[in-house]
């Protein structure tokens, strides 16, 4: 496998600078002469690292410490800290009667949105990387759901789904497919489905563009060689395109899992009419614990927040483990 400098989307590379950057110089340095790196004065090195360090300290570490601190406190409904709660908040979260439902919703939400997004994006990226008249406009159009604020998109879908005036029900009824309107957001059997549709809709643009870039990075000569050897289109796709797309697939999956897991506005907006936690994921659960539910407890919510971070780290860790394992065994 070529190391093909993974198709990293720009914002991510620059934001995640901590790790990759610190490794790059050692490779580049070796080419030029290994000794030089060590000769930089530590103060100078620190100066160069300062922005990144400040970012990590200010944006990651400080809030994390505050969050942990809050999770160990006992808070009044007003937000006033009344004392230390020890691990009490964690116990309360774990003993919450709706935790099971919330976790199940989270799994369904993340797996469904990411899986459907990936499959659809693979197809759409294939289509958008072919040249056809007006391709540029179609590509622009695809970006729009990404560019629009999630709250606005969600609110728009609330209108589309509406029971009384929603255009979706209007069209379905007009076509004679249904007699009665469907209560997309209020009927328990439809709510999750309706939210997943929106989740996929907003995740598509980013994923499609990652895949378009991935497709563009596949060398033409490999394809040509395969064609000359008489491989059918399906064989070419399965044995060449997909394996070469693996870095892109991996990035798209990991980032989408994180984004979708952390997605707040879609679920919060589409689910706001439903009482209780029947359709909440761990993220909206955390918010409701702090501000909407009868618990109204900042400490408990912070504890739930800690669980969220641990959960996503574990999930991503497991995923990477599986990917590496596959790579090792495929050699």
């Amino acid at each position: 496998m070529t190391e093909s400098s993974t198709v990293t989307p720009d914002p991510a590379t620059s934001a995640g600078s901590g790790h990759p950057r610190s490794r790059m110089p050692s490779r580049a340095g070796r080419r030029r002469g290994a000794g030089r790196i060590g000769q930089v004065h530590p103060v100078v090195a620190l100066l160069w690292l300062a922005p990144a360090l400040a970012l990590i300290l200010g944006v990651v570490l400080y809030p994390a410490i505050k969050l942990f601190d809050a999770s160990r406190g006992e808070y009044s409904i007003t937000g006033l800290r009344k004392g230390d709660a020890g691990w009490g908040n964690y116990v309360k979260v774990l003993e919450h009667p709706d935790l099971g439902t919330v976790l199940r919703n989270t799994v369904i939400w993340v797996v469904a949105v990411v899986a459907i997004t990936i499959v659809l994006s693979l197809a759409l990226a294939q289509f958008l990387s072919k040249s056809f008249p007006g391709r540029r406009f179609v590509r622009w159009a695809v970006i729009i759901p990404w560019a629009a604020s999630l709250v606005i998109t969600s609110q728009l879908f609330v209108l589309l789904y509406d029971y009384n005036y929603g255009i979706i029900n209007h069209v379905l009824q007009g076509l004679g497919l249904i007699d009665q309107p469907i209560d997309f957001l209020g009927n328990d059997s439809w709510t999750m489905f309706s939210m997943v549709v929106v989740g996929v809709f907003v995740s598509l643009p980013f994923t499609i563009f990652v895949f378009i870039a991935g497709l563009g990075a596949i060398p033409d000569d490999v394809m040509e060689a395969a064609t000359v050897d008489g491989a059918s289109p399906w064989q070419r796709y399965w044995n060449i395109t997909l394996p070469l797309m693996r870095p892109a697939l991996m990035i798209a999956t990991v980032l989408n899992v994180i984004y979708v897991f952390n997605s707040f506005p879609i679920i919060y907006t589409l689910n706001d009419r439903n009482p209780g936690y029947a359709h909440d994921t761990t993220i909206t659960f955390m918010y409701k614990l702090a501000f909407k539910s009868q618990e109204h407890d900042v400490g408990m919510s912070a504890a739930a927040g800690i669980f969220n971070v641990v959960l996503i780290l574990v999930v991503v860790g497991i995923y990477l483990k599986i990917i590496n394992w596959r790579e090792e065994t495929s050699r």
Binding site: T8, V254, I258
Partner: peptide
């Protein structure tokens, strides 16, 4: 790289 991205995402 992916770990870096993950942290950035978080």
């Amino acid at each position: 790289v992916v770990a870096g991205l993950a942290i950035a995402g978080l």
